[in-house]
Nucleic acid binder design. Structure first.
Lengths: 246, 246
DNA sequence: ACCATGCCAAATGTGCACATTTTTTTATTA
DNA sequence: TAATAAAAAAATGTGCACATTTGGCATGGT
């Protein structure tokens, strides 16, 4: 009786662990510099260590975790320089997107962008900060997606997810909303098919955001309680009645 | 005496296998659609199957191989649409790079670009096709690198390596050289700090290349002899007299 | 007291055996 | 004969045992 349910092909399990850790990263629950050891994580998620291992390496390949050979995974501690580079990359990419959009802009596209702007303004007016932050970021995604090129959309997605993590370290939380007017100005320039103005406005917009970057002083808490961070996530596989609070 | 040299930490081995397969991909030795099974590759390279497995998945994460769960790795068979998208992404990215370069351009940068153009012209004049192809691609890399942003450089690098593979399928080999004049025109526009012209020239340049794309008829040979393809690579580890004949 | 050196515990890396899934081959039937 | 189904073969996925490396700690020498 040695066979006991091993090799159960369950790709959803990999994905669940991946998403859980990624979400913790994106929501800033994992502080920069935190060590992510394999064994504890395996215990927390109730999966094998190999499973965790694979996910960790995947996140490392995506540059969302810092992998050091024989020394495991850590939440990266980006320098201000790193953050600036990501922002610059975003800025450059958007300039390119705009250069292509002015050639393709039509009433349908403009209508969609206007609709988005209306949403943004509505959220701002009713003081819904959460929605504002979300819509503000979505605007830039909307711009690339307008080109209908998955390659470009994915590139921006990677960039955004990385800056999300960084923002939690460097950006003062209260101000992380793009000014709606600036977004409106970009759309206006597109409407006029004025590429230079569109790029200039976009550039100013980004520089404005970049200018607000500053080192968040709260980088003290080194050792985090991983179990607490991933607590809301229900264990994927029970560990044979291990410490089940009755 | 059960321990027999397992777990030998050798990161160079991973890297060697990775590089070997990647190079075969980039050089077009692996035809589109070729199945890359784990076991044969392990035998060819003389490493464990797990080693191959890891490398294959890494290449899959980089979108250089197409991974299908439970069905292994294949060399992707990009559609013409896919190739166009990669080229468009490259074009868009370069437009963004130019928009940033016009703001930063100075004599030092111009001198370097001129030097590169001179190299390109020299290679073209002496009919060195190999050098021409290499330098022609390097020009675009040079442009991004001028910004000194590793994020952007890496983005372009990914794009280029992908299109390299695709080119072998779709681009008529003989013509895959960018016209030097077009590169020169881009630099000239930069010298004048004329962003619109730089973007327009760059755009024309890419459209010119894209226009030459056409499906290469030689997509017949499905089953390749992997052993022959990787032949020049010396086996990394002898197989400990396993399967002693006799 | 301070730095160097040699163990010991803990964490990461790897090969292997086996489960699962897919693909190919063979057998059966309309 | 062609189509379908069952069985065999092959390939991929996973957990585990063990090797290797790393980091900390105690010990001894200058």
């Amino acid at each position: 009786m040695r066979a006991q349910r091993i090799g159960k092909a369950n790709p959803a399990e990999d994905e669940a662990v991946y998403q859980a850790i990624l979400r913790a990263l994106l929501e800033g629950k994992l502080k920069a510099g935190t060590k992510l050891a394999e064994t504890p994580l395996a215990a927390i998620f109730g999966v094998s260590r190999e499973r965790i291992r694979k996910v960790l390496h995947r996140l490392g390949a995506e540059r969302r975790l810092e992998m050091i050979p024989n020394r495991g995974a850590r939440v990266p501690r980006p320098t201000l320089e790193d953050v600036r580079r990501v922002y610059e990359a975003h800025r450059v990419l958007e300039a390119g997107v705009l250069s292509q959009l002015v050639l393709r802009i039509d009433n349908v596209l403009l209508a969609r962008l206007d609709a988005h702007l209306a949403e943004e303004r509505a959220a701002a007016q009713r003081g819904d900060r959460a929605a504002s932050v979300r819509l503000s970021g979505a605007f830039h995604v909307h711009l690339v997606d307008s080109l209908g090129n998955p390659e470009l959309s994915r590139m921006l997605g990677d960039l955004l997810s990385r800056s999300s993590v960084m923002v939690s370290v460097y950006e003062p939380a209260a101000q992380s909303i793009c000014a709606v007017d600036e977004h409106g100005a970009i759309v206006a320039a597109l409407r006029d098919r004025d590429l230079l103005r569109a790029i200039a406005v976009s550039r100013e917009h980004f520089l404005h955001v970049e200018g607000r970057l500053q080192l968040d002083a709260t980088e003290s808490s080194e050792s985090e309680d991983l179990a607490a961070i991933f607590a809301p996530v229900k264990p994927l596989r029970r560990k044979a009645r291990s410490a089940q609070s009755g």
